[in-house]
């Protein structure tokens, strides 16, 4: 505890870095995955291909991808972009599947009747399909968020900032308190993100019992969440 208090400044810095490194992949992954998922749901032909590619992508171990990134992107090994691109790819791989299922779950009756009432494809997407797919999308996003926050710690192995630094440093110094601080911090960030997502969900999807959908979605998005 004294160690924590003495190093509060550094812990806070690492936490902020961790949060920043996490947010980009979560947001980017979500924004990219929803249209891809919608595409896979709307055009059956592309579906198999898209889902297979995502499945394969997820098979690549994340540490492997992080260390291969400089070769692929031509970046420096310490560039945060390596981590962000890798985690974004994972987020997409996780999220596309859920998004496809989420759109699938919107009843065809509703879609047909809204078309019949005169919604164009564009307005139907924004006003019918997206909101109705919302609860399952949110559930998927929660899984992505938890997994991403945890994966950011791996960046420490390639010298990236974030709470993972407390793991490598604590290990080298043989100092469990420091490591434990890192673990607790990471879990706390994950929990705070999760609560925020639930609150945003309540705000945007007031009609859906968020918790219920999440429980159902946790099944849908039952995926390798914290793979390293």
């Amino acid at each position: 505890m004294t160690w924590v208090l003495a190093n509060l400044g550094q812990i806070w810095e690492l936490t902020v870095a961790h949060v920043l490194l996490s947010i980009a992949p979560i947001v980017l992954g979500f924004l990219l995955a929803v249209p891809i998922g919608w595409f896979a749901y709307r055009f059956r032909v592309s579906r198999g291909l898209v889902l297979t590619v995502c499945g394969l992508l997820y098979t690549i171990p994340s540490l492997a991808l992080i260390v291969a990134m400089p070769t692929i992107l031509g970046t420096k090994i310490l560039d945060p972009l390596n981590l962000i691109v890798t985690l974004t790819l994972y987020a997409i791989a996780l999220m596309v599947r859920t998004a496809t299922d989420a759109f699938d779950a919107v009843s065809t009756d509703v879609i047909q009747s809204s078309t019949a009432v005169g919604f164009g494809a564009w307005r139907r997407f924004w006003q019918v399909e997206l909101p109705l797919a919302g609860p399952v999308l949110l559930a998927g996003l929660r899984v992505v968020s938890t997994s991403t926050v945890s994966l950011v710690t791996l960046g420490a192995l390639v010298g990236m900032s974030g709470l993972g630094y407390l793991f490598t440093n604590g290990y080298q110094r043989n100092f469990p308190t420091e490591i434990l601080t890192g673990i607790v911090g990471t879990v706390l960030i994950a929990v705070v993100f999760d609560i925020l997502l639930v609150l945003i969900g309540r705000m945007l999807l007031p009609w859906a019992r968020v918790d219920d959908a999440a429980r159902r979605g946790a099944g849908t998005a039952r995926v390798k969440a914290v793979a390293a």
Binding site: T153, A156, F167, N174, P176, I183, V187, V191, A228
Partner: peptide, 19 residues
């Protein structure tokens, strides 16, 4: 299981190793 998924693997590993 939800909580288990939030645990960072690397952290848990080095913590146990040191412990």
């Amino acid at each position: 299981t939800g909580a288990m998924r939030a645990l960072p693997t690397l952290g848990l590993l080095v913590y146990l190793a040191v412990l």
